[in-house]
Design a protein around this nucleic acid. Structure first.
Lengths: 342, 342
DNA sequence: CTGAAAGCGCTTACAG
DNA sequence: CTGAAAGCGCTTACAG
């Protein structure tokens, strides 16, 4: 069974291709009876217009591209699902690509998306990316781009972010309110903006509450993994550092630290209260359940898609395009790992 | 800056469009010097051939579609990432769609993929899907389809599956070897094949080891969620059922059951040994860490993509297309929740 | 209200 | 080795 084309329909109904095309697109200058015939026949024959051919004229592919570091990650899979869900409602499909924290792959993937003529690109920039010429090319190419979570100040486009500094502040403040006096921080790498912001929030909270900042109490967990957390806790233990509160860059990091502390019979939260970050699914299921900061990846995806639609609408109307930075609120979720007082 | 076309290059170099096209595709009947000029100029000008226009002639979009119930799921995000990674190596991009366990949406999404003229469709059929006419349409349409994890016997195409029956057997056998005599099973719904198979493996293991099957010890956890597990454990507790082993349909279900048991001061594994399923990330991080069955979603994705490439190759060579069913091995991972003897 | 015709950007059988 | 021409399936400005 070969695919049906406008031509086939025109022949079958003895009218022109033009009329068939117009009828299907509900042009006002086609008679009601003709429209009806065309539409009924098309439906009966299960006609599917060829999207690639349409593109040649309309320049809209109705395809979006999203580039994330990885999908195997609670936060990012949520963002992507948020985008996919809203995209579907708006009649778009989404190409998903994983850059795996590699600048080189990110560049290659963005080029592929441009070549595919996607209508929009959603990206969370790899932590290792230094040169952003590939992203500037997207903008020069007039393709809508929405950057989320890991953004760059040097791109004129809309962004969706979490207020990581505030989140770091809230997490630390909570530990202080629980009575912690010496609060450690297992931070992310030195370069990612999110790691910097959470760290700055941590410092600000200490300062605002009259606690001294001790740089010995800060360690770097480059990958934010469970292993990282375990090792940092081990390192502190061997160094004989004493602390009664811990704020970590991620929930797995918190879980790793807790695993080490348990091994040494250090009680959580009694001896050390712990707050993680991101509200991974595992945070609610560990013992003790991990207090954390919830950043809804899903809402980020939804908001990113909304900003995309706004920009498309402005372009359609030939209005001036305005860029927005949406801040998705994050909130503290208190569980067992940080609850010192009853 | 408008997009460069073959025509622009032809004009710039004073040759025909035909020759430019051939030169770029490395046809043998173009002189070396011409080829060189064309290739150098194209590179300099950052020429990107229009894929939609090519499609009109070649009928290959180099786009694949994958339909999963949801991305926010450790197993499925792994499968999708496996597909994406191998697809990238082979020069394909992947449209990802979430059917959310709805038959209606699954039908709609598959139609969209066909309309987009994707070169292949990867799907894990929704648990709620009864009518598979939309999938038969894919095959009639001559589009390659690979079904994974949740397959249907009524589709003539390649499949990638886990041997769930064997996996259920292994999990149960392990509990028996740990000395359990009354082993409960929190199974999935009655319809999904994977739930049936794991259940049958459970029964077979009991039978092979001379343990009596007691249907009171089997409860249904329709969603395989943490809450389901908690509630089933609660139900058994209230019913006064005694058991010393538990095999659950998923790791969250196991985590939920353990949470309830802890609340009642029933020790895991000493009083009740527990084995979950799927090796979710959380399984390694709970206390006690959950013994489980590892089914590598990533490998399923990789294998699905390999089968796709095989079928494409057969079609290209006009060979007869052979359908395969690949079985990805699953393995038991023993952690604390099931380790009775030291 | 209807339709002939041009054109989107590419590929390829064919002629020279 | 090179190129004119047809055609993939659609859209739309234009003529009638």
């Amino acid at each position: 069974m070969n695919k049906l084309t406008l031509k086939d329909i025109a022949q079958a109904l003895n009218i022109s291709i033009t009329t068939v095309s117009k009828a299907l697109k509900d042009y006002p200058d086609v008679s009601w009876s003709t429209k009806k015939r065309v539409i009924e026949y098309s439906k009966k024959m299960n006609f599917k217009p060829n999207v690639q051919a349409s593109y040649l004229r309309t320049r809209e592919t109705k395809i979006l591209g999203v580039v994330v570091p990885t999908l195997i990650h609670y936060f990012f899979s949520n963002v992507v699902e948020g985008i996919i869900q809203k995209a579907e409602e708006a009649g778009y499909m989404v190409l998903v690509l994983c850059a795996d924290e590699s600048e080189e792959r990110e560049k290659k993937l963005v080029k592929q998306l441009l070549q595919q003529n996607v209508d929009g690109i959603f990206i969370s920039i790899s932590h290792k990316t230094r040169d952003i010429s590939h992203l500037k090319e997207v903008l020069e190419n007039q393709t809508v781009m929405i950057v989320f979570d890991r953004i760059s100040k040097f791109l004129k486009c809309s962004n969706v972010v979490i207020n990581d500094r505030e989140a770091g502040y809230i997490a630390t403040k909570h530990l202080i309110e629980q009575g912690c006096q010496r609060i450690a921080h297992f931070r992310g790498g030195l370069l990612p903006q999110i790691a910097i912001d959470r760290y700055l929030g941590y410092r600000k909270a200490l300062e605002d509450h009259g606690l001294e900042y001790d740089k010995l109490l800060v360690d770097i967990c480059e990958n934010g993994s469970e292993k990282d957390g375990y090792q940092s806790a081990q390192k502190f233990y061997r160094a004989g550092l004493s602390y009664d509160g811990l704020f970590t860059i991620s929930d797995p990091t918190a879980a790793g630290a807790i695993r080490f502390l348990h091994k040494k019979n250090i009680r959580v939260p009694e001896d050390i209260a712990v707050v993680g970050f991101s509200n991974w699914q595992l945070a609610a299921l560990t013992t003790p359940a991990i207090s954390t900061i919830d950043q809804s990846g899903f809402l980020i995806g939804v908001e990113a898609m909304r900003l995309f639609m706004v920009e498309m609408e402005q372009r359609r109307k030939k209005e001036e395009v305005t860029f927005n930075t949406s801040i998705i609120p994050s909130k503290l979720i208190v569980r067992e790992s940080s609850l010192k007082k009853k």
